[in-house]
Amino acid sequence: MQVHLTAPNFCDLVQNVAQQVKADLQETELLQQFQFPVEFGQGWVQRLNIRPGVTLTLERMTLFEPLTILASQGMSTSTLDICFCLSGQVQGSHWDSHQTTTLSANRGCLGFSPEIRGCLEYASAEPVQLVNIGIDIHELASVLHHPVEMLPLALQHSLLGNSQCPYIQHFTTTTASQVALQQILNCPYNGLPRRLYLESRVIELLAHLLQSLSPSTASSSKLSPDDIERIYAASEILKHQLEHPPSLLQLAHQVGLNDYKLKLGFREVFDTTAFGYLWSVRMQEAALLLKRNRMGVTEVALSVGYSSATSFSAAFKRKFGTSPQKYRQHC
């Protein structure tokens, strides 16, 4: 099942999805919610305005077939998103940067991108439970009661608009956060008491997250803003040289870093190695080629730097859980 988003603004996401799955959307000043029609499975989505500049989106569903939400035209957003996965699996792909994020039970991610062009893929046949906190970046300092300068340098870099690449940082949900998440999903109140209760749990979750990000984590970064700029430059080189990428030493030399700083930078900025980043970009480019035209699997493999279609197919299945042929059939 595919849902093609047409709304230009990310804030209209819930309404847009509800329209396309033909669900009855209920709306008030503070709440949007809908239930999936029985032909799709069971479950619901709720989006609540917790306080000015802060939204809370709750998703609980068990679908009969995978759900893919596509934003092919680009959706503008000024929201810093913090997503927690309690169960199931969801994969997000940011097409322009070739970055992917996979969330599973007790994993989460902090992310920001001024424009979203990509897709979200929800697994089927198992319960998916997600809690997402959205914070308007213009209200960030007042909401967090926390200087933006204390956030990780790479995130500051992205929030200031100095990079076209999205910022994504993965984390493991702590035991204390898991308790707060369950309390959010099973809130016993309605009306104003419910909003106040959920706001208190959201603040608790933000406190746990900030504890892990700063001040020690942020201040311990060994990357300067100039280093981060060079890491992004290195990522651009890899994206444009998929067939014949430079070696790690060559890449470091091209962007003016030593190999140690390059390795450290990819870990800190992209939460992976330079090789892992290249592999992810190759797979995302391959997926786009399979969706957009009729190139054969061997041609796609060659275009993303694989000399063997067999090796490419094995790598593709490791990334997406299916073969290139079956992936194309379901696009």
Rank of each mutant, 00 (worst) to 15 (best):
residue 104 S to V: 00
residue 95 W to K: 08
residue 89 Q to R: 12
residue 100 T to S: 11
residue 94 H to A: 06
residue 100 T to M: 05
residue 98 H to V: 00
residue 86 L to P: 07
residue 94 H to P: 05
residue 117 R to S: 15
residue 109 C to M: 14
residue 111 G to P: 02
residue 108 G to F: 07
residue 90 V to D: 02
residue 102 T to I: 07
residue 116 I to E: 09
residue 109 C to H: 14
residue 108 G to W: 07
residue 116 I to L: 14
residue 105 A to D: 01
residue 86 L to F: 07
residue 112 F to H: 13
residue 93 S to G: 02
residue 103 L to H: 10
residue 93 S to E: 11
residue 86 L to M: 12
residue 94 H to F: 12
residue 91 Q to Y: 01
residue 94 H to R: 06
residue 115 E to L: 15
residue 108 G to Y: 11
residue 92 G to M: 06
residue 104 S to R: 07
residue 105 A to K: 06
residue 111 G to E: 10
residue 92 G to E: 04
residue 92 G to K: 02
residue 106 N to P: 00
residue 110 L to Q: 12
residue 102 T to D: 02
residue 89 Q to V: 05
residue 100 T to H: 05
residue 101 T to G: 07
residue 90 V to H: 06
residue 85 C to N: 13
residue 114 P to I: 14
residue 97 S to W: 08
residue 104 S to L: 00
residue 103 L to Q: 10
residue 116 I to R: 14
residue 104 S to F: 01
residue 97 S to G: 03
residue 108 G to C: 09
residue 99 Q to S: 00
residue 111 G to Y: 14
residue 102 T to M: 01
residue 86 L to Y: 03
residue 101 T to K: 06
residue 95 W to D: 09
residue 108 G to S: 11
residue 104 S to N: 04
residue 113 S to G: 08
residue 100 T to P: 04
residue 98 H to S: 03
residue 110 L to Y: 12
residue 110 L to D: 12
residue 96 D to G: 07
residue 101 T to E: 08
residue 103 L to F: 04
residue 117 R to T: 15
residue 100 T to G: 03
residue 102 T to H: 02
residue 106 N to H: 08
residue 92 G to R: 03
residue 100 T to D: 07
residue 93 S to L: 10
residue 106 N to M: 04
residue 108 G to Q: 05
residue 95 W to C: 08
residue 114 P to Y: 14
residue 99 Q to V: 00
residue 97 S to D: 08
residue 91 Q to P: 00
residue 88 G to N: 13
residue 116 I to C: 08
residue 114 P to G: 12
residue 91 Q to E: 02
residue 95 W to L: 10
residue 95 W to P: 04
residue 101 T to L: 09
residue 115 E to Y: 15
residue 114 P to D: 14
residue 96 D to Q: 14
residue 97 S to P: 09
residue 117 R to D: 10
residue 85 C to E: 09
residue 89 Q to P: 03
residue 106 N to D: 06
residue 91 Q to T: 10
residue 107 R to D: 01
residue 89 Q to W: 04
residue 91 Q to S: 06
residue 88 G to C: 12
residue 95 W to I: 07
residue 86 L to H: 04
residue 112 F to S: 08
residue 94 H to E: 07
residue 107 R to W: 04
residue 94 H to D: 07
residue 101 T to R: 11
residue 99 Q to L: 00
residue 99 Q to N: 00
residue 109 C to W: 14
residue 104 S to D: 05
residue 117 R to Q: 15
residue 109 C to N: 14
residue 90 V to Y: 03
residue 115 E to W: 14
residue 101 T to Y: 10
residue 88 G to D: 13
residue 111 G to F: 12
residue 97 S to M: 04
residue 111 G to H: 13
residue 103 L to S: 05
residue 114 P to T: 13
residue 86 L to Q: 12
residue 87 S to D: 07
residue 92 G to W: 00
residue 108 G to N: 10
residue 88 G to K: 13
residue 107 R to S: 00
residue 101 T to C: 06
residue 110 L to T: 13
residue 100 T to V: 02
residue 111 G to C: 02
residue 108 G to A: 11
residue 106 N to E: 09
residue 86 L to V: 11
residue 116 I to T: 13
residue 104 S to K: 10
residue 89 Q to A: 05
